[in-house]
Amino acid sequence: MSDQNKSLDPRIARLELPQGESIVKPDEYWGTFEVFLQEKRGKFHQHVGSVHAPEQEMALVFAKEQYARRGKCVNMWVVKTTDIFAFQLADEDMFATTPDKQHREAGMYKVRDRIQEYQNRQK
């Protein structure tokens, strides 16, 4: 940095700031891990996002810093992003008829009217 740009900040002024380029190389920031957080015992681990890390232990360290700074947490999982096998979102229509399958739902089974009718017939 030139003198006229000298920082007002004494901490910055003491650094020997580099001149010229500083190129980050491909992969220098590592791959990603997906992070799953358990808020309390008895709950499922939930996906909360990703972190970049060189390996799984560092991924847990970064996951804790990134996703468990606030709020409740009792446990975390990290999984290499490339180890996650998923459906294509483009195939979401294969789930489209699921809500129509009323025979799988408790609410489908209503017998009160029939009981009422039976009891009326018995009178």
Binding site: D27, Y29, G31, T32, E34, P54, E55, T81, I84
Partner: peptide, 8 residues
């Protein structure tokens, strides 16, 4: 250590 695209 290889770069990967995060999932979501």
């Amino acid at each position: 250590t290889k770069s990967t695209v995060p999932l979501a």
